[in-house]
Structures are given as structure tokens and as C-alpha cells.
Amino acid sequence: MTQNTNLEELCEVGVSVWLDDLSRERIESGRLAELVATKSVVGVTTNPAIFHAALSNDGSYHAQLRELATRGAGVDATVRTVTTDDVRSACDVLAAQFDRTGGVDGRVSIEVDPRLAHDTDETAAQAVELWKIVDRPNLLIKIPATAAGVPAINQVVSEGISVNATLIFSVERYELVMNAYLDGLEAAKAAGHDLSRIQSVASFFVSRVDTETDNRLTKINTPEALELRGRAALANARLAYAAYQRVFETGTRFRQLDVFGANAQRLLWASTGVKNKDYPDTLYVEELVAPNTVNTMPETTIDAFADHGRVKGDTLSGKEASGQALFSRLEAAGVDLADVFDTLEAEAVEKFTVAWKALLDTTEEQLRTLRREG
């Protein structure tokens, strides 16, 4: 098998391609391994909605669910067993990429229960539990970067655990996440952990920023407002990348940890499937190219880029001023950006909580049916 040239070129300029999806059928059929072999995929991200879709539509879980039902397993234990088994298997599929990249890629993420998003201690405790259950060095624990999640990120990293800080929408929150990661590294060093073994990504959400901002601009309905549609998300990403460079490329605090083997916390562009069909389907890939970044994509976006995506070089470095200018124009047009980001975070936590509850309900119904069948 040979790699797709478009995706291979994307990797060559410093973007790691991760798949935003996972199911047992994808693992057992070899489709995940095929994406690794032909589409440059070197990582996987999951979330409650992805697991709910998998367990609702994939018959590959039937035998394990029957066994768990026979043993009298509860719904929470069943979901934990099934999801961690899938993630462990995906980690094994990607083990070669983990070894080849020195632990940078070959990563698979699993998320803590989103119902804990506003509880620091419970989030941290479950993160440690998931790390032990999956028991793979190429695991990432996804922790939402809510006000309560940020100190949990610090605490979990301090224990030598690799973290995917997720649901980041604003640069202000991202700066808190970077500081929490550095705090965690400093504490991990003091506790004697090997910093070179700790990796982290910061999942900065993209397309949802355009969706929310575009809706507000459409309601404002002035020529100035309408002209700004479809531009907020990329401006936000440019500002985020500039913040990354200040901390991890030129910042003295990270440099002091770097000498002990610490790894920079890479920016991961999440929510990169285009939701507005008026926009190019590769928009949030082509315009988010910079060294040492990750783009996690649904398979449809990977396929679109493989077919007609273009690599135009680094599209983020040196763009902070243009991003800030666009933000100033949005504010002048009447968009309250702080409220945009607060709204998006609240909606995202709610959406994943609903998906997690739906996952529990679906699993409970399947267990109930299997017990009745004997």
C-alpha cells in the first residue's frame, strides 16, 4: 500500500493527521490499519457521541455485551469495559506509529465522563482510573478545559499522565490550559517523573466558532456584518497559534523544562469538518497548516483532502495581526466574542453529556434485552 500524496505532503510540513472516529468494526475489519497505511493517519480521537454511534450501529459488540449481561454487569461498568477495550485495541494498531515518532504520534484519546466537567477532583480521579485500565503508553486522556477542568489537567499531568485538553474555544482559555500543562510538568519533574514520556495536545475547536458567529452576523444583517461571515474561526486559530509560539517556541518557562526532556503541548485542530456547505470542504485543513500541529478529521474530510486538498505552506505563522484585526471588526459589527465562546463551551459540554446519557441508555436497553433472551 502507498500513502496518498496530498496527505503525505500535509504531514511533511508538520501536520499530524488524526482520525476523529472509532468503532470496533473499524478496528476488526482492518479499516483503521488501512487508513494508517494509505491516508497518513497517525492518531485517533474519540468522544461520547462517537461511542454512542458505534454501540448503536455496530453488531461487533453483541458477543461482549451478551457476556457482560450474563455476568450481571451494570451499565456504567459495561460502557467502561467496552470503550476502554476499543481504545486499547486502537492503541495497539497505532503502536508502530508511536514507536516511529518517539511517542509524539500513534496516540488514541479517551474522554472522561462529561457529566464530571464541572468537578475537578472527580475528573482527575477518573482520568487516573482510565489511564490504568487502558494501560497503554500511547493513550491520551481527554479532559474538558472548563473552569473546573483546567486544574484537573494540571493535576493529571503532574502524575505523569498524557492529556488531551479538549473543548477549547477561546485563546484566553487556551492560555490557561498551557499554564496548567506547564504547572503539571513542573510538579511531575519534582515528583521524579520522566518528562519525555508525557505528551499533551490542546484541542482547539474550529468550525463551531464559524457556525455560532455566522448566525449572529446574519441576525445583525448589515453589509459589514455579512461580509465577515466564515472568517472568525480561522482568525481565532491564528491567534491561538501565535499564543502557542510565545509559550513553547520562545517562552523561557518551557525552555527551562525542555532541557529535562519536556514536550511542547501541540495545538490540535478539532471540529474541522465543514458544517456550512457553502464553504470548501477542506477549508479547516488547508488554512490550518503550521509545524508541530495536529488536525483530527472525520473520515469524510480525510477523503476530501486526499482527493483535492492543497498544501499551500504554513498558513498560520505571522498571522496574529490579521487575526486580531478581524476580531476588532467583529466586535465593531456587534458580535460579543466572549459570549460566543461561553455559549459554545456550554453547548459542547451539554451536547457530550446528552450523548453520554444516550450511550448509557442504549447500552442499558441492550443489556436488558440480552438478559431476557438468557
Score class of each variant (00 low, 15 high):
residue 205 F to N: 04
residue 218 T to F: 11
residue 198 I to S: 03
residue 201 V to G: 05
residue 236 N to P: 07
residue 235 A to G: 12
residue 207 S to Q: 04
residue 208 R to H: 12
residue 211 T to I: 09
residue 193 H to N: 08
residue 222 T to R: 00
residue 188 A to K: 00
residue 208 R to P: 12
residue 238 R to S: 10
residue 218 T to Q: 15
residue 206 V to L: 04
residue 218 T to E: 15
residue 235 A to H: 03
residue 203 S to K: 03
residue 190 A to T: 14
residue 233 A to L: 08
residue 188 A to G: 06
residue 196 S to Y: 13
residue 228 L to W: 12
residue 227 E to N: 08
residue 193 H to S: 05
residue 220 I to Y: 03
residue 225 A to F: 07
residue 201 V to A: 05
residue 198 I to M: 02
residue 214 D to E: 09
residue 210 D to R: 06
residue 232 A to P: 13
residue 212 E to T: 08
residue 220 I to W: 03
residue 191 A to Q: 15
residue 215 N to P: 00
residue 235 A to L: 03
residue 200 S to Y: 03
residue 194 D to S: 10
residue 205 F to D: 02
residue 196 S to L: 10
residue 214 D to S: 11
residue 206 V to C: 01
residue 225 A to K: 00
residue 206 V to F: 02
residue 224 E to K: 00
residue 225 A to V: 07
residue 231 R to I: 00
residue 239 L to D: 03
residue 203 S to I: 03
residue 221 N to L: 02
residue 237 A to D: 02
residue 236 N to C: 02
residue 202 A to D: 06
residue 192 G to A: 12
residue 232 A to F: 15
residue 233 A to D: 08
residue 236 N to D: 09
residue 230 G to S: 13
residue 193 H to V: 08
residue 225 A to C: 07
residue 226 L to Q: 10
residue 208 R to I: 07
residue 228 L to K: 10
residue 198 I to D: 01
residue 214 D to C: 12
residue 219 K to D: 15
residue 232 A to S: 15
residue 207 S to K: 03
residue 204 F to R: 03
residue 198 I to Q: 00
residue 208 R to Y: 09
residue 208 R to Q: 13
residue 191 A to L: 12
residue 188 A to S: 05
residue 207 S to T: 11
residue 192 G to K: 09
residue 209 V to M: 04
residue 216 R to D: 04
residue 188 A to T: 07
residue 197 R to L: 14
residue 206 V to K: 01
residue 239 L to G: 08
residue 225 A to L: 06
residue 215 N to D: 14
residue 189 K to H: 15
residue 225 A to N: 04
residue 229 R to T: 15
residue 218 T to D: 14
residue 235 A to C: 03
residue 202 A to R: 02
residue 203 S to W: 04
residue 226 L to F: 00
residue 209 V to Y: 02
residue 230 G to K: 14
residue 188 A to W: 04
residue 192 G to L: 10
residue 227 E to S: 14
residue 191 A to N: 14
residue 228 L to S: 12
residue 214 D to M: 13
residue 235 A to W: 02
residue 200 S to F: 03
residue 238 R to K: 09
residue 233 A to N: 10
residue 213 T to R: 14
residue 205 F to L: 10
residue 223 P to N: 00
residue 223 P to Q: 01
residue 231 R to G: 08
residue 199 Q to R: 15
residue 221 N to I: 01
residue 201 V to E: 02
residue 200 S to W: 04
residue 192 G to S: 11
residue 207 S to Y: 05
residue 227 E to G: 03
residue 193 H to R: 07
residue 191 A to Y: 08
residue 223 P to Y: 05
residue 198 I to P: 01
residue 195 L to M: 11
residue 236 N to L: 04
residue 193 H to D: 06
residue 193 H to L: 05
residue 230 G to M: 14
residue 203 S to N: 02
residue 212 E to V: 11
residue 211 T to S: 11
residue 233 A to C: 10
residue 234 L to N: 09
residue 199 Q to D: 08
residue 234 L to E: 09
residue 233 A to E: 05
residue 222 T to E: 01
residue 191 A to W: 07
residue 233 A to K: 06
residue 219 K to W: 01
residue 200 S to I: 00
residue 212 E to P: 01
residue 192 G to C: 11
residue 218 T to P: 00
residue 214 D to V: 14
residue 239 L to M: 12
residue 207 S to R: 02
residue 204 F to V: 08
residue 200 S to V: 05
residue 210 D to P: 10
residue 226 L to S: 09
residue 232 A to I: 14
residue 203 S to C: 04
residue 206 V to Y: 01
residue 190 A to G: 10
residue 234 L to V: 13
residue 199 Q to V: 14
residue 216 R to V: 13
residue 217 L to S: 09
